[in-house]
Amino acid sequence: MDKVIEIKNISYKYGAAEGVDVEALRGVSLDVFKGEFLVIAGHNGSGKSTLAKHMNGLLLPTSGEVRVNGIPTTNDARIFEIRSAVGMVFQNPDNQTVATFVEDDIAFGPENLGVPREEIERRIDEALAAVGMSGHRKSTPQKMSGGQKQRIAIAGVLAMKPRVLVLDESTSMLDPRGRKEVVETARKLNKEGITVVLITHNTEEAFFADRIVIMNEGHITAVGTPKEIFTDAETLNKNRLVLPPLLEIQRLLVIAGYCTGEPVFTEAELSERLINLL
């Protein structure tokens, strides 16, 4: 499979100037494959967000190397090529828009890249349609819900035509509805061919991932499919994460002697299975 991002044994230290010397990443290696939906899960402070910021050269590793489409992120001359290939959305929905109006905000990326004017207008429409916000071209994000604001932020990134979309804890400040909006948007974009890297501490969001990477103390401590990760409560707990309720129920039912076999990820499937047991 094609690797879009290659992370080779990177470490990241900060605070050396203040004499505190924190090692946020310790020898992390990870490849992101073209077209996959990758979730990086970890508790707050596990290093997951620091890792994300290495994926488009916002941070440079203290040692080791990160390559995007084969270009090392240390290559200053091509950094904008990297950043337009790996779009990134952040945590706080209020801190990512530069303009008062949606269309101006979405235009920011392509304007910076010198995309021709008519092309920008087309991209604004496409990006808004892709996140299900057509018709909000002239609105102001100020008055929108958190989920809508984050979708606008995603549109702003899509307008640069990236290959990878990194959501750096973009759901953590949202209510369940907003979280669902963002995750569903990401899934839809993934089906349309964009590689998605979702950073989160809400393990529910990893149900439909192709791969889950778990981080703790600056290390990758587990990698697996949802079926593998969500049948291993011990590993999750060791990494200060929890089984989502739907999986916790299945774990308890298995212990009680009901409900064997592979885990399921929707309530409907589980209830069907339970009905068959009665």
Partner: peptide, 25 residues
């Protein structure tokens, strides 16, 4: 609610996973 709709109404509605597993058993 799903079980109830399928005709299997457990007497009490469970609030948390532990309760659900115990009540279902």
């Amino acid at each position: 609610n799903l079980l109830k709709a399928a005709g299997a109404e457990m007497p009490l509605l469970p609030l948390v996973p532990e309760e659900f597993a115990a009540m279902f058993a």
